[in-house]
Each structure stands twice: as structure tokens, then as C-alpha cells.
């Protein structure tokens, strides 16, 4: 899992090129960081004084925010708290339909 792979400068309007991470790769980043945060969160609930875990949590939160931002910019909202000029919530398939890779 790489945090700083946002070398891709593409947005909704640019043409796909081979350097752009695919939707699947972006989704995997979001999922991976989300998982790391959930797992560290449970650990920190019973080990709140573990500074190493706390530092990791901070790092992954930052990575997660960036990964979500990257995904949403290109593929639309992952939650309804992301505003777009049109209602893009309907564009991507639903997770239970296998749309999550």
C-alpha cells in the first residue's frame, strides 16, 4: 500500500493514460487505509497509551483522506457528503453487485 502514489494529475476531464491508477487500484487504496484505521481504532480502544499505534493511526487517516479525495474526484461520491454538480451517486454500481472489485 503506497500513500504517495498521487503522481497522477488527471481529473474528470483528462484522457486516460497508462500512468493513471485504475478505479480498482484507487478503490483498493481506500479500502486498505479504511481497514487499517478500523483495526488500529479497535486496538487503541484497549491500548490508548500506545504512541506507536497512535502515530500509525494519524498517518493512515491522512492517507485515507487523500485516497478518498482522489477516488471521488474521478469516479464520484463514496458517500453522500461529497457534493457534485450533478447527482453522481447513481453512476457507479453498488458494492453488493460486485462493483467494488
Amino acid at each position: 500500500m503506497e500513500c504517495n502514489n498521487n503522481t497522477c494529475s488527471c481529473n474528470c476531464t483528462c484522457k486516460e493514460n497508462s500512468k493513471c491508477p485504475t478505479r480498482e487500484e484507487m478503490m483498493n487504496d481506500v479500502r486498505g487505509f479504511n481497514f487499517a484505521i478500523v483495526e488500529l481504532g479497535l486496538y487503541l480502544d484497549t491500548h490508548p497509551d500506545d504512541t506507536r499505534a497512535l502515530a500509525l493511526h494519524k498517518e493512515y487517516c491522512k492517507c485515507y483522506k487523500e485516497a478518498v479525495e482522489r477516488y471521488q474526484k474521478k469516479y464520484g461520491p463514496l458517500s453522500i457528503f461529497y457534493p457534485c454538480n450533478k447527482w453522481r451517486w447513481l453512476e457507479q454500481p453498488w458494492p453488493w453487485e460486485g462493483g467494488n472489485f
Partner: peptide
């Protein structure tokens, strides 16, 4: 398994 571990720690607390 992870949840079991955390519940065990919570129980000791």
C-alpha cells in the same frame, strides 16, 4: 478472532 482478543482486554479492564 480480533474481536475476541479486544473483548478479552475489555473484560479485564
Amino acid at each position: 478472532i480480533v474481536h475476541f482478543q479486544r473483548f478479552g482486554e475489555a473484560l479485564r479492564g
